[in-house]
């Protein structure tokens, strides 16, 4: 009878219900685990953060010095090349002159032969004339050759001198650069460290972002202003970089630098901010 079944259920529904409820929960749990195992491949990467390191790159005095040195070397090389070209041209000119002279001589000899043939009877009086002429020509040639040699010598001297001068200048520049270099390096390291300490990076920072901030300073190390010259695209990031600079200022240790070094390298400085060790 249908009623009897219903009645049984009413009084004995508990075991069935317990089984059903437990099954339901196990199924849900299994579903959860299944979805999770499927999703593992593109799971969110939530990672314990490492300490963030601000990378600070200058419009580096060291780099600019290096660049200047390279430019100087290039200039010297260019000079040398020009010199060589000039020398080559001169040598050619000399050769041409010699060839001309030779050709003239040939012609004169031929003329002389012709003269000898045609004017045998005039030879005696003409000989005098001819000799004189030859003498004159020889004189001229000698003079020309002498002048060319002199020019060559002069140009060589000049080149040597210039090379010497260039070498001296390079040596001096290198010396100055090496002493400057240390000061600049310590100054930049200092600024870098201070800014880094004061930089609290926003959560929106991502690897590959780069903000460049140009700062202007007084010789006392005080900050005049800081402007964003290149935005990272994220305003929060730019702001954090700017704040870091303002917070780090003043860089009082820069007072110890010689004024010329300061002016050359620190009066205006570009700081590049990039979070380099983020994991996403």
């Amino acid at each position: 009878m249908k009623d009897s079944i219903n009645n049984v259920i009413i009084y004995n529904g508990y075991p069935l219900s317990v089984v059903a409820a437990v099954t339901f929960h196990s199924l849900l749990l299994a579903l959860l685990l299944y979805l999770q195992s499927n999703r593992n491949t593109d799971a969110l990467e939530l990672i314990q953060p490492t300490v963030v390191k601000a990378l600070l790159v200058q419009e580096n005095p060291q780099v600019t010095n290096e660049r200047k040195r390279v430019e100087r070397q290039q200039q010297q090389q260019r000079d040398r090349q020009q010199e060589e070209a000039r020398r080559a041209a001169e040598a050619e000119r000399q050769q041409q002159a010699q060839a001309q002279a030779r050709a003239e001589e040939d012609r004169q000899q031929r003329e002389r032969a012709a003269l000898r043939e045609r004017q045998q009877q005039d030879r005696l009086n003409a000989e005098q004339l001819l000799r004189e002429q030859q003498q004159r020509e020889a004189e001229q040639r000698r003079q020309r050759e002498l002048a060319a040699a002199q020019r060559l010598q002069e140009s060589r001297d000049r080149e040597l001198q210039r090379q010497q001068e260039a070498a001296d200048a390079a040596a001096a520049a290198a010396e100055v650069a090496s002493s400057e270099f240390e000061m600049i390096q310590s100054g930049t390291a200092l600024i870098q460290q201070l800014v880094q300490e004061n930089w609290s990076r926003p959560p929106s920072a991502r690897n590959g972002m780069q903000a460049i901030i140009q700062i202007r300073m007084l010789p006392t190390g005080e900050l005049i202003d800081a402007t964003i010259t290149q935005s990272s695209g994220d305003p929060a990031f730019d702001r954090s970089a700017e704040n870091a600079v303002y917070r780090a200022a003043p860089f009082t240790e820069l007072q110890n630098l010689p004024i010329n070094v300061f002016n050359a390298n620190f009066r205006s400085l570009s700081l590049i901010f990039e979070p380099e060790d983020l994991l996403n």
Binding site: K2, D3, N6, N7, I9, I10, G13, Y14, L16, S17, V18, A20, A21, V22, F24, H25
Partner: peptide, 24 residues
Amino acid sequence: SIISWVMIFQRWLVLSAAAKGVLS
């Protein structure tokens, strides 16, 4: 959750049986 689902299933059996019992 487990207990409440036990109740849910058990009540469902009881109530549906009672509703059917009324009709029959």
